[in-house]
Design a protein around this nucleic acid. Structure first.
Lengths: 214, 214
DNA sequence: CATGCTTGTTACTAGCGGTAACCCTAGTTT
DNA sequence: AAACTAGGGTTACCGCTAGTAACAAGCATG
């Protein structure tokens, strides 16, 4: 039958695809986001055109590769977010999960976050945030839906949740990026500080000199 | 005299340098972060090697160009941060200043934030956050010092302030990036939502379904 | 046997960042 | 006046990248 044959070929193609992705993964883990198509093809034991047949484009391969890690990370985050604990604990667990992930595999993290996608072709003119940094966007949207599902924010709550989702993810990301570079404190301390920030300690803190401090 | 001659030449060189930077600015404003050295040289009416004599390197030109915009933006932010108003107003003014800036010149913004710096040379291996995204780092540090100067955060306050500085900047950046792409609401609404987040509304909100909500 | 179809290769294009070698004009020195 | 040096500037190149066209097998089916 055509169908069985097709599925057979499909399976074979999928297996190859997975193998190629794993090779790409290894190279990225070794070389960071500058991993070249040549290097990836060599690691996979083949040559460039096959890569292009499978993924069409460098950004295609990037997208496929990113999806794997993004899905994995998002699953961990969802687990932390859905744990049966109070809100503060869940927030801290989520922050810690994210930070542990970027701490464990900084090269992958960097590949996902700073893909350096701008080559010489395409991408012309004002596509801020179209294909860029898709992980941050997905995380932001995900968090937004969780916030909107769980919290009672009154009218306009949906939009508020989206702003907060992207804002909190950005906070987590920037603080994590900085922390990963300088390592000024332990992960637990960082988590506590960020949770404190989200818990309004910024607004609650007293002024230091003169003025209307209490 | 030697000195006058030297200063004369220095002046001339500085003027050229400024002209080149302005040409580069124009190209970046037109082409975004993919602006090539060739294009910049052509816009300036000269050829590549002179660019390299002046800036040594593409990242050298990038750094010089970024410093201009970064300094300008940071000055605006400092002004908003130092205004004689209460804390909430100052925070909102700062957020609005940043968002207005990226709204006015998205190409420049993108050049600063996503420089796509990874070429084929240098930058090898695990330099997360060394030269990358210097604007975010500078803004984070700046905000951290302001927080630490003004707020009484008790013991460990300095570190807390740095975490918060980078975290808040990241929140602002990510939310701004998302907002710039989707434009889901007005700038004023975005500012209010973010300030609400910083003011602890996330922790204060009630649960939506069952559970220990109040 | 011939016809496809998938898998793979070699060999190329076009454009990038970066550089070596040269050219040419202005001013100084003898 | 003639020689000589100092910068600003250009052409022509290198090595690299992403991406592609064209060609060579293995293996099913008519």
């Amino acid at each position: 039958m055509d169908t069985t044959q097709r599925t057979e070929q499909q399976r074979s193609a999928d297996r190859r695809r997975r193998e190629l992705l794993e090779a790409a993964d290894r190279v990225v883990l070794r070389d960071g986001p500058q991993a070249s198509m040549n290097a990836i093809a060599a690691e996979a034991g083949i040559t460039k055109p096959i890569l292009y047949r499978h993924f069409g484009d460098k950004s295609g391969l990037y997208a496929a590769l990113a999806k794997r890690h993004t899905d994995a990370l998002l699953n961990s985050l969802r687990a932390a977010l859905d744990a049966p604990a109070d809100r503060r604990e869940r927030v801290e667990a989520t922050l810690d999960t994210y930070l542990a992930a970027i701490e464990a595999r900084p090269q992958v993290y960097r590949f996902l976050m700073h893909p350096a996608e701008g080559g010489q072709t395409a991408d012309q003119g004002f596509d801020v945030g179209k294909h860029s940094v898709p992980l941050l966007r997905r995380m932001g949207e995900e968090l937004a839906t969780v916030i909107e599902e769980r919290l009672d924010l009154g009218p306009g709550g949906q939009q508020l949740a989206r702003v907060w989702g992207h804002g909190i993810v950005g906070m987590m990301h920037a603080a994590g990026d900085w922390w990963l570079g300088e390592r000024p404190c332990s992960r637990a301390e960082l988590v506590r500080s960020l949770a404190d920030l989200l818990w309004g300690r910024l607004a609650a803190a007293g002024d230091k000199m003169g003025g209307p401090g209490f």
